[in-house]
Amino acid sequence: MSGAGFFRAAGLVARKDLRLERRCGEATLPALLFGALVLLIAAFALAETGDDATAAGCAAFWVAVGLSANLAVVRGWAREREDRALDALRLAPVPPAAILAGKTLALAVSLLVVELALAVPAVAFFRLPVPASAAWLLPAGLLATLGIALVGSLFGAMTVDGSRGELLIGVAVYPLLVPLFLGAVEVSRAALSGGDWADVAGWTLLLAAFDATLGAGALWLFGLLLEE
């Protein structure tokens, strides 16, 4: 299959997931509510930490995103499990990697919506500054979101044929995402504290390398994960 065919198939899968999500909001809404709750609880405990409030706020934001993502991943794959809809995708003449790419893209869009919505209470609860340098957060935020979506989609596929896969999300996904969350928190803290590109470049590049490495591995591995 040509590259264009791959992207076309991935686009079709992503469009299907986003259509389902727009219609039902089953992944995004619970994730959003749960993330807001995490932020609220964290704000009660951590908001009055003086100079460290920015760091605490950034950490709380990404913890909220990470935990919310779990809900979005599980729900996104539950759709494939119900009535074995995934079989129909697997029977289509498209490479398994295109299915992963499509599901990753759709999940990333859902997570971006959740993140944008959570950013408002995070700024309010932790009184986070939003200087011009906050723009440095954009590339890192996109890369972190893509990484979470990629790993989540990869392991989410394992939830399709039974409940043990959901356990794996907790056991395997979060440890794998540690470097990504560290990078996201560090870039967020630096960007919101008035840092410049030099302060965020290292972590941003690390996030890019993380996504590239994991992406290549995931695209290769996904077909094997789907095999029964």
Binding site: G5, K16, R19, L20, E82, D83, A85, D87, V94
Partner: peptide, 22 residues
């Protein structure tokens, strides 16, 4: 082996493989 070679193959099992909200 190649996915596009499978275009001529169709299968329906015990489940309808439909997305309920579509």
């Amino acid at each position: 082996e190649r996915p596009d070679a499978a275009a001529g193959r169709a299968y329906l099992g015990h489940h309808t493989q439909l997305y309920g909200d579509l």
